[in-house]
Amino acid sequence: MNILLLLKNEALKLVKKTRAWLGPILIFILIMVAFPLTIELTSNNLSDAFYPVLFISILLVMMLATEGIFLEDYEDGTLELFLISKKSLSQWVFLKIFMHWLLIGVPISLLGAFFNLGANNDLSSSLMIFPALLIATYIFLILFCFGNSLSLTKGSALGTLITLPLTLPILVILGKLNTAIIFNINYFEFLILIFGVLSIIIFAFPAIISRIIKTHLE
């Protein structure tokens, strides 16, 4: 019940802030709509460039989605209340990230698979890219949350600067996944690899982030 209440609260807080919730999704749509305009209208070029643009735009949108994710809670005293009330801060961080993924990451993954259909005219590749996008959006969200927790009061630019290098190995795996989808080889190996990364950081990072937030509050 407590967890459900926390989830509901986080969902309400996020939905109320249209800029934080709908903004990243709309920006993603705009990028994906705008990028074909910059390429010659030959379908080969479009499909070649599609996956790199998709992955980079997801990275940027997740960065925007986590901008100041803990700042409001820090400024209005929510985080201090958590600390005083002896409730698990890492559980709250986990739920907050999960809710962001549910409301931003999942729609963007769906849209990414939909745009893939438009760019490649291939349903099977869309079905293959969808789970990869679900996992990648969650990983990016967690990593950017980590960066934002480090630079809590110092602006999101610093958080981005220190987090982007950590996201690059994931981009490399996604690049390999792109090749795997195109040639239909080793797809599940790469999918399992990024799922493995997610399964580690999904539990480790909320604990680390909560330690970092406690450091800010000391």
Partner: peptide, 25 residues
């Protein structure tokens, strides 16, 4: 870039103890 990010993070805090902890994480 990682090294530069670490230096930037540490330099952005005046409180050395806090900066050291965040830098270490």
């Amino acid at each position: 870039i990682m090294y530069l990010g670490l230096i930037s993070l540490h330099n952005s805090f005046n409180n050395f103890d806090k900066a050291d902890k965040l830098f270490s994480y």
